[in-house]
Nucleic acid binder design. Sequence first.
DNA 1: TATACTCATTATGTATACAATTTAGATTCG
DNA 2: CGAATCTAAATTGTATACATAATGAGTATA
Lengths: 210, 210
Amino acid sequence: MAETLKEKAYTSIRQRILDGTLKAGEFLTERSLVETLGMSRTPIRAALERLDVEGLVWYTPNKGLVVAEISLNRVDDFFDFRTALECHIVRKLAQRNWDQDDVDWFEENLRQQQQYVQDNDCARFTEADSLFHRKLARVYDNAEIVQTIESLQDRFYRTALSVLQKDAGHIQVSCEDHAAIFALIRQGEGDAAARKMEQHLVYGKRILVM
Amino acid sequence: MAETLKEKAYTSIRQRILDGTLKAGEFLTERSLVETLGMSRTPIRAALERLDVEGLVWYTPNKGLVVAEISLNRVDDFFDFRTALECHIVRKLAQRNWDQDDVDWFEENLRQQQQYVQDNDCARFTEADSLFHRKLARVYDNAEIVQTIESLQDRFYRTALSVLQKDAGHIQVSCEDHAAIFALIRQGEGDAAARKMEQHLVYGKRILVM
DNA sequence: TATACTCATTATGTATACAATTTAGATTCG
DNA sequence: CGAATCTAAATTGTATACATAATGAGTATA
């Protein structure tokens, strides 16, 4: 046997938050999750404990729990955090020799992004966008940073998706930004890549908070 | 009534890890914690779940748990992560107007650091050092970054302390670095402050992995 | 009518019993 | 003698009973 119920509960609840089944701001009770997931409270409480630390739900002692919401003044913090990490990453990646496999991955990813822009497919573009940023962190290969960026993306995914689908115009710009950033990295222009990344993230934030 | 047993357990176990009562690499059993803390397994398991996500202990399903160790190749990741965050912070802080209270805080903290260097008091210096870096994040006032830096410091504290106490010579250099970084920030020299911070952290890492 | 109080309901907090898994040591077989 | 297997102890995983705190409806009172 492999997966414990605790892990199943974690995966399942997290999935429901990310795909929007459980909406931000919604109150949860352990009993409702017991019925939905068909297990006892114990593994569910363990899963919620994890999700609380990760910031996907908020626990209040003796009160209950809520699916985490992203407040607007937190959007600033999120993008600023990403700016710190991702500018650092591209600066350092520009000074590095690359595996051909990784180069191929990005070229393919950028091709797909272009395709989704042409098709005006916001959902798929957002997915490819997310993968682009995650892959930068993974190639950079700092386990701590990878985990943090992926956790930030999780917490932000629903908010981003709901807003980005309202404004299709942005994906053209974002797509060009990604291509420019990758090109600058490959040319060894770390500072320029970092500046472009910061500009890209500022642009993304403005789309979101408009 | 205020604090739940779960929170007491969390605080207590975390404290025991940070102060070295529970040593890195040591195996733990829930039963031993039950006896030590005088409560049932339930709140203890909740606390351990949190500590696992935060990286202070490692859980293995059906096996047990270990107090987290910092492997040497992870030291690189830690310092690189801090570099990304703290260089960003000082760069931005240099462009900002400061409250006099905060300026006063740093001047007092730097005075203390000098005193501890004179007294050759490594433990107190390390404490002031830690506060210096935390305060930079707090003044910068990005809640996400503050939390991450403090979490990183927690996970690193024991390793840092044990090594730093072996080499007293470094505290003189670190103290001068801190003063220089703060001065550059106040002069609005963000890039220079960031360069100094990176150099400072590289120096700190080399002390640790020597 | 407004307010304060009571009490039942329902939620979470905690303890504990039981199940399943791992581990180590004893035992058996080649 | 060594290796594989079985068994028992201990540990974690899970379910559940009970304790306690929060909530709200209903009622009494000013």
